[in-house]
Design a protein around this nucleic acid. Structure first.
Lengths: 204, 204
DNA sequence: TCATGCACTGTATAAAAGAACACTGTTCAT
DNA sequence: ATGAACAGTGTTCTTTTATACAGTGCATGA
C-alpha cells in the first residue's frame, strides 16, 4: 500500500512521536532525509494523508495524527503491585513493580477509575482459573457476595472469593486444598477483581 | 498536588490531546479559558512543568508531553476476531470485531509483531484456565509441542493444545469431555497463544 | 510584615512552521 | 505514447507560536 519511501517517512514520524511526544515539522522531516527542499517533505505528508494513514489539521503546527491511534480507545495506566502488602492503604502507597497500560474497553474500566493490579502468587484461586503469575486488575468499589476480592483479613492481605452467609462474611479459596478464611476480627475488602491479564514467555 | 486551576488546565490539555491528537498552543489555551493575556496560559504551563506533570521542549510548537505517557511502554493494537473463521488466512482478512490495545511489555509481544486475538467460545480449554469469553492473543510463529495453538484441522479452525507424539501431530482439548482431534488430512497451525485478557462485567 | 506562590493583564518581538507556485525527471500501467 | 503517481528542487509569503519583560492583586505561612 505504501511505497518504500513513504514507509520510511512513516517510520520516522512514528519514532519521533515516540521519542519526543510530538510530530516533526516539515522542516525537521526535510533535514532528517536530507532534502534540499521543504516541499519534498510536504508532498510526502500529502501522499500519506491521501492513503489514509495520517490526518492533517490545516494551518496548525505539527498537526499530524496517526489514523490508527485516532481510532484507539482511551488507554488507562494501571500500577502493578507485587506482593500484596499487609496494611495496604494504611501506611501510604507502596511502590508499583510495573505498570499495565490497556484500553478501557478491553478491561471494562472507566478512564477515571482508581484501578490497580496485583501479581498473583500461588494457586489458591486455580479453580477460578486464576494462575500463578497472572496479573489481576482490581477496582476499589463495594463488593457483592461471591465477588473475587483483595481483602485484609486479620492483618494479612490476600486474593480470595468473598462469601456472605447469614450476614457473616468470610473468604474462600478456589482450590479444595485451602480452607475457608473466617475472620477473627477484621475483614476489610480492598478491591474487587474486574479483569485479568496473562502472558507466556519471559516474566517481568 | 495541583491547584484546582492547574487541574482544569491539565484536563483541557488531556481532552484536546485526545480529540485532536495534538497539544493546544498557548493561544488556544488562552482562548478556551477566556484569558485576556497569553501569558496566563504560559505561566500555567510553566507551573505544570515545575510540578512534573508535563514536559516542554523549548522553541518548538505545541511541544508539550504528559510525563506519564512518556514513561509508558509502546502500545500495540491487536485486532480481535470473533468466530474463528474457517480458512482464515486464505481468502483475505476477515473483519475484526474489536481491538485490544495493550503495552507490549504486559503482553510479551514485540512492537512489530503480527499478533491477533480471538474471542474464546465454549469451555473446551477450561483445564488450561481459558474461559468462555476470554480474549486470547496469538502470534504467527512456529509451534512447539504442547503449545496452545489456533489450528485449521480438516477445514475447521479451533483453539487447542498441539501434541506431537511419534512424529504425528494432533490437537487435544483441555477438558476431559472433549476427544482428541486427529487430522484426517491437514493440520495447519495459524498461531500460537502468547497471552490472554479477561474481564468481568459488560461483554463487548 | 514580608516573602512566596498563585493567577492573572498588557505589550512586543523573533522564531518556527505551514502553504503556495513553478518546475524537473522517473517509473509504470493502459 | 501518454497520463498518472512518485520523488524530488527552488523560492517566496504569511500565519502561527513561543518567549520575554513589566506589572497588579490576593492569599498564606514564617
Amino acid at each position: 500500500m505504501l511505497t518504500q519511501r513513504q514507509q520510511e517517512v512513516m517510520d520516522f514520524l512514528r519514532s519521533e512521536h515516540r521519542k519526543t511526544g510530538i510530530m516533526p515539522s516539515t522542516r525537521e522531516i526535510q533535514q532528517h532525509f536530507g532534502f534540499s527542499s521543504q516541499t519534498a517533505a510536504v508532498s510526502h505528508l500529502t501522499a500519506l494523508e491521501k492513503k489514509g494513514v495520517i490526518q492533517k489539521l490545516a494551518g496548525k503546527a505539527r498537526a499530524l495524527m496517526f489514523t490508527d491511534e485516532m481510532e484507539r480507545e482511551p488507554i488507562i495506566d494501571i500500577p502493578i503491585y507485587g506482593q500484596i502488602p499487609a496494611g495496604f492503604g494504611d501506611d501510604g502507597v507502596p511502590e508499583p513493580e510495573g505498570q499495565l497500560s490497556v484500553d478501557v474497553r478491553s478491561m471494562g474500566v472507566s478512564t477515571h477509575s482508581t484501578a490497580y493490579a496485583l501479581r498473583v502468587r500461588g494457586d489458591s484461586m486455580i479453580d477460578a482459573h486464576i494462575m500463578d503469575g497472572d496479573v489481576v486488575v482490581m477496582e476499589d468499589k463495594p463488593a457483592n457476595n461471591r465477588d473475587i476480592v483483595a481483602a485484609l483479613i486479620d492483618g494479612e492481605t490476600t486474593l480470595k472469593r468473598l462469601v456472605i452467609e447469614k450476614r457473616k462474611k468470610f473468604l474462600r479459596a478456589e482450590n479444595a486444598d485451602y480452607p475457608d478464611l473466617v475472620p477473627l476480627q477484621e475483614l476489610l475488602v480492598q478491591g474487587v477483581m474486574v479483569g485479568l491479564v496473562r502472558h507466556f514467555g519471559r516474566s517481568w
